[in-house]
């Protein structure tokens, strides 16, 4: 199992050494990657995926447990170093969830797939809130269900030690839970995002500028407080969504819950009576 990856020695678009000259990410850690469009986020990810060894545009080297591609036989034999989950991805194969998961476990030479497939399914349903069953067809899944299944599959079946999560802003899945699951499986997680909740979920984040890694921040105590607020807002929104979607109105007289806006804190909350 991979212990850490290191990104080192890169240049920005003008050929100057980038300000963050070394970034270590350990197994089970999440690093956010932020910056405007064109700042170099995609190139950074591309360097990692290609296992760059000083030859890409940025001149960066990627080390896995301190070794380059040339030195590490183990990693060279890995078919996939980086697993990706992004908003643009869809299942295109016309098969049931069960048939497909069996196929994927066979590819990974997993002997008794039944147990793992059950775990993937329950993880998926925990993440998406709209349950799916093994006999559902992959191409019929909603966006949220697809993303949830992708995360569960990456966590349980895929061998790739590094996971890249690219802009799953509002994919209708429990993102905090998804990150916890991936961390728990010892994956190195990189999170490219413009969404404040997701950005703050990463304990550290790297800021991209002009093609280079410009700054490296740890989340501050205040940011963590704000994150807690944001998560409350998300919970509120998701309950509100379910409430309305299930055909209910919002009138304190009909229901047990009172939906209100917290005037003092400036946040939204749900009060239980």
């Amino acid at each position: 199992m991979l212990k850490k990856i290191t990104i080192t020695g890169g240049l920005d678009k003008d050929g100057h050494p980038e300000r963050v000259q070394r970034l270590d990410i350990g197994a089970g850690e999440v690093v956010g990657v932020v910056g405007p469009t064109g700042s170099g986020k995609t190139q950074l990810i591309s360097d990692i995926e290609q296992y760059a060894d000083g030859e890409t545009l940025t001149g960066r080297s990627i080390l896995i447990d301190g070794q380059t591609l040339q030195q590490s036989v183990e990693v060279r034999n890995l078919r996939h170093l980086v697993a990706q989950v992004s908003q643009n991805m869809n299942f295109v194969i016309d098969m049931t969830i069960e048939e497909f998961l069996i196929m994927h476990t066979q590819v990974r030479s997993i002997g008794s797939p039944r147990q793992i497939i059950r775990e993937v399914l329950s993880m998926c349903n925990e993440l998406s809130g709209e349950p799916v069953s093994l006999t559902d067809n992959l191409t019929r899944l909603s966006g949220g269900q697809s993303r949830a299944l992708m995360v569960a599959d990456v966590a349980m079946i895929s061998q790739a030690p590094i996971v890249l999560i690219d802009e799953i802003e509002n994919a209708g899945i429990d993102r905090l839970q998804a990150l916890e699951i991936l961390k728990g499986k010892g994956k190195v997680v990189l999170l490219v995002s413009h969404d404040p909740t997701l950005i703050l979920m990463a304990r550290q984040r790297v800021v991209m500028k002009n093609g280079g890694m410009d700054k490296l921040y740890q989340t501050t105590a205040t940011e963590q407080k704000i994150l807690a607020d944001l998560l409350r807002v998300e919970k509120y929104l998701s309950r509100l969504r379910d409430h309305l979607r299930n055909g209910n109105t919002i009138d304190p007289k009909d229901g047990k819950e009172e939906w209100c806006y917290g005037q003092n804190t400036g946040t939204l909350s749900v009060k239980h009576q």
């Binding site: 996939h80 697993a83 990706q84 989950v85 992004s86 869809n90 295109v92 599959d153 990456v154």
Partner: peptide, 12 residues
């Protein structure tokens, strides 16, 4: 980039 990781692995 537009199909799931699982499909990439099976296809490979």
């Amino acid at each position: 980039d537009i199909v799931s990781q699982a499909e990439r692995e099976v296809f490979r």
